Computed example of a mutant assay.
Amino acid sequence: MKKLAFGPVVDDQTRLLILGSLPGDASLKAAQYYAHPQNAFWRLIGGVIGRDLAALAYLDRLDALKGAGVGLWDVIASAERAGSLDAAIRSPEAADLVGLIDSLPTLRVVAFNGATAAKMGRRVLDGRGVTLIDLPSSSPAHARPLAEKVERWAVLKPFVALE
Rank of each mutant, 00 (worst) to 15 (best):
Y34K: 05
Y34N: 06
H36D: 14
Q38D: 15
N39M: 00
F41V: 04
W42T: 03
R43Q: 15
L44G: 07
I45Y: 00
I45V: 15
G46Y: 04
G47V: 07
V48G: 02
V48A: 06
I49M: 09
I49Q: 00
G50S: 13
G50H: 12
G50F: 14
R51N: 12
D52M: 12
D52F: 12
L53T: 02
A55W: 09
A55T: 12
A55P: 10
L56H: 04
A57W: 00
A57L: 14
Y58M: 10
D60C: 10
R61I: 03
L62S: 02
L62M: 06
D63T: 15
D63N: 14
D63E: 15
A64I: 09
A64C: 13
K66Q: 11
K66D: 00
K66G: 04
G69K: 02
G69N: 03
G71D: 03
G71N: 03
V75M: 04
I76M: 05
R81A: 12
S84K: 02
S84Q: 07
D86I: 01
D86F: 01
I89G: 05
R90T: 09
S91C: 11
P92F: 11
E93K: 14
A95C: 04
A95M: 06
L97R: 10
L97Q: 08
V98T: 12
V98M: 01
G99S: 09
L100Y: 08
D102C: 11
D102T: 11
S103H: 02
P105C: 08
P105E: 07
A111C: 10
F112P: 08
N113S: 01
N113K: 00
N113V: 02
N113G: 00
A115S: 11
A115G: 10
A118N: 05
A118Y: 02
A118H: 08
A118L: 06
G121N: 06
R122D: 05
R122F: 04
R122A: 11
R122S: 14
R123S: 12
L125V: 02
L125G: 03
L125D: 05
D126S: 15
G127C: 09
G129M: 12
G129P: 03
L132Q: 05
I133D: 05
L135Q: 00
L135D: 02
P136A: 11
S137D: 05
S137R: 00
P140F: 06
A143L: 14
A143Y: 08
V150P: 00
R152S: 10
W153V: 08
W153E: 05
A154C: 09
L156W: 02
P158T: 08
P158I: 07
F159D: 01
